[in-house]
Computed example of a mutant assay.
Amino acid sequence: MISRDTIIALNARAVAADTEYPERFDLAFAAPATAQDIAALETLLNIRIPDQLRALYQECGAFRHVHYDDSYGQTIALDGVGAVLEQLRTAGDRRYGSHAGQGLVDFIHAHWGGRSDLDDILDEETVKLVNENYIAFGCRYINDDVHDYWYFDRNGMFGNLRFDQDELDYNSWKIETLCDVLPPGDLALDAAQRRAHTLGNIAIYSEPHDTFPGMTLRELIAYQFAAIVASISPDTD
């Protein structure tokens, strides 16, 4: 399980690495989520929240860097269940930058200021499949053009999608491939079979592992904090 102490320890490495602006990594934690709120969120999302994320929500709520998305440094934000419920209950048109949902494509649109560039590339069926099968729950701000979006899938696996607004064709390929790794709807598979099918399809592609689901939550979060440390540490090569 990812505990509050684990997150603080991972973040401490970023604080220690930044000798100029360590305050950029000040952390804030949300209140722990109740079982009732998590159940309400699952109902709205129509998907089961994986046990690892459920435990994180209940143990320490959620967390974010207080200075999330400041232009001078990489920062992380994972919204609490209460905030997500409020967003979903007041969802608006994603073209205007509102949270139309926590589906991965809608989440990207909301964080991207409602720009519609992806609508010219992705067809409606692709958007529908991705939004229904991949739920975004956190983000690492890298710079104004590049974000890492954290998500989980219906198999309870976690992944990270790197989105660079200057590489729309590559972004769309990754999003479309997330559809390709899903088992066809006409296959009667149990949970273990679906997971194996997905992992088998993922193995066909040679792109970086974080493009597709397959991580644990601990691996994903540790990777994100380590990437921040690497970005501000002196080059040792």
Results as ranks from 00 to 15, higher is better:
14 A>H: 01
16 A>E: 14
16 A>S: 14
16 A>P: 09
17 A>Y: 08
17 A>D: 05
18 D>R: 12
18 D>P: 12
18 D>G: 12
19 T>A: 11
19 T>P: 00
19 T>R: 09
20 E>V: 15
20 E>Y: 11
20 E>A: 14
21 Y>V: 07
21 Y>L: 10
21 Y>F: 14
22 P>Q: 03
22 P>V: 02
23 E>I: 01
25 F>Y: 15
25 F>D: 07
25 F>N: 00
26 D>Q: 15
26 D>N: 14
26 D>A: 14
26 D>R: 13
26 D>T: 15
27 L>V: 08
27 L>M: 11
27 L>N: 13
28 A>S: 09
28 A>M: 05
28 A>G: 03
29 F>D: 04
29 F>T: 10
30 A>E: 15
30 A>N: 14
31 A>N: 14
31 A>D: 15
31 A>E: 15
31 A>R: 15
31 A>G: 09
31 A>I: 10
31 A>P: 06
32 P>D: 05
32 P>E: 09
33 A>E: 03
33 A>H: 00
33 A>D: 03
33 A>L: 02
34 T>L: 08
34 T>M: 05
35 A>D: 15
35 A>Q: 12
36 Q>H: 08
37 D>K: 10
37 D>S: 14
37 D>Q: 13
38 I>C: 11
39 A>V: 06
39 A>P: 01
41 L>C: 05
42 E>Y: 11
43 T>P: 00
43 T>Q: 10
43 T>S: 12
44 L>H: 05
44 L>R: 14
44 L>K: 13
45 L>E: 10
45 L>I: 13
45 L>H: 02
46 N>C: 07
46 N>H: 10
46 N>Y: 04
46 N>L: 04
47 I>V: 12
47 I>E: 08
48 R>E: 11
48 R>A: 12
48 R>C: 04
49 I>A: 04
50 P>N: 03
51 D>C: 05
51 D>Q: 13
51 D>V: 15
51 D>W: 02
51 D>R: 07
52 Q>W: 03
52 Q>T: 07
52 Q>R: 00
52 Q>S: 14
53 L>M: 09
53 L>G: 05
53 L>T: 01
53 L>Y: 05
54 R>N: 11
54 R>I: 00
54 R>M: 01
55 A>I: 10
55 A>E: 07
55 A>N: 04
56 L>Q: 13
57 Y>N: 00
58 Q>Y: 03
58 Q>W: 00
58 Q>N: 02
59 E>C: 04
59 E>G: 12
59 E>I: 02
59 E>R: 01
60 C>P: 04
60 C>E: 03
60 C>K: 03
60 C>S: 14
60 C>W: 03
61 G>I: 07
61 G>R: 03
61 G>D: 08
